[in-house]
Design a protein around this nucleic acid. Structure first.
Length: 276
DNA sequence: ATGGCGGAGTGACTCCGA
């Protein structure tokens, strides 16, 4: 099963990019961010024709998240991040797809920092950590996928010294991300590629793509019950070079299906299995 | 590297993203 996350940067303006990528990559489940579309303008007909069911939480002009599922409809479990009834930005959507609970998030950018936008980002991170802990406590296989707007380490940015005061890289933000890892979440890409320089975003400005001046901002975090099923992870870099591309590239994982995962875990615990 | 590029909402500009 392939699960991907893609900050599409305008789902209507970039619909040809989305449809081409769905046809080429054939992900089983997709988290989209930055729809920049009100609910009534979400291109559900074209997405259904491409073979996907979908749920979405849009908003005029900005934000907006969606979950797509190939050949089926996502089973919605939550709309909006709990913890603040006054927060009306469309940044969190959650659904079950083929036995996996998928949280789709678009974390606030937070610039300029310091300031009210940065404060909102830190509050959002706190609410997110609380909800993530609740999800983990259920024991369900969970992936939290999306645009975190967090550069986790110096390895995840082309020139760390240019970003020290930026809301994507400030210590408070990095520490919040690492507290998630300490709590038991697995950064899928980093767990399989511990040393590699991997980016998911390249600015439109200053020929960032041509210079490979990128950032790793889009992440898939796996619960302890899902992490053992991780087979592969990567970034569809070439999509960033397409005509009318988003400034983000899709990030993806492949996991064993639920039945195979159960067999694997059973095999691992078996006394007959030789030590790895 | 504080200008750039690009989308959306409106209708030459603004706001916003990262």
């Amino acid at each position: 099963m392939k699960i991907a996350s893609f900050n599409i940067n305008g789902v209507n303006g970039r619909l040809p990019v989305l449809l081409r990528w769905l046809a080429e990559a054939e992900p089983d489940a997709v988290c989209l961010q930055e729809l920049k579309s009100p609910d009534e303008k979400f291109p559900i007909d074209a997405i259904r024709e491409a073979g996907y069911g979908a749920i979405w939480h849009g908003q005029k002009s900005w934000n907006g998240v969606a979950i797509l599922a190939r050949g089926t409809d996502p089973l919605e479990t939550r709309r909006g991040l709990p913890g603040d009834d006054d927060d009306h930005q469309s940044r969190y959507l959650e659904a079950a797809v083929k036995g996996v609970l998928i949280g789709c998030l678009y974390l606030p950018n937070g610039n300029p920092a310091p300031g009210p936008k940065f404060d909102y980002k830190l509050r959002w991170l706190g609410r997110f950590a609380n909800h993530a802990a609740d999800l983990m406590a259920t024991g369900a296989p969970v992936v939290l996928a999306g645009d975190y707007n967090v550069i986790p380490t110096e390895l995840d940015v082309y020139k760390p010294e240019h970003w020290v005061d930026d809301a994507l890289f400030r210590p408070e933000v990095r520490e919040a991300f690492h507290r998630l890892l300490d709590a038991g979440w697995t950064d899928a890409i980093r767990s399989l590629h511990p040393e590699a320089s991997i980016y998911t975003f390249w600015d439109y400005l200053r020929n960032a793509w041509g210079r490979d001046a990128g950032l790793r901002l889009d992440h898939l975090l796996l619960s302890p019950t899902l992490a053992p099923r991780l087979l592969a992870a990567g970034v569809h870099r070439d999509v960033r070079g397409w005509e009318k591309a988003s400034d983000h590239a899709p990030v993806w994982i492949e996991i064993t299906d639920a039945e195979a995962g159960t067999k694997r875990r059973a095999a691992r615990s078996s006394k007959r299995r030789p030590k790895e």
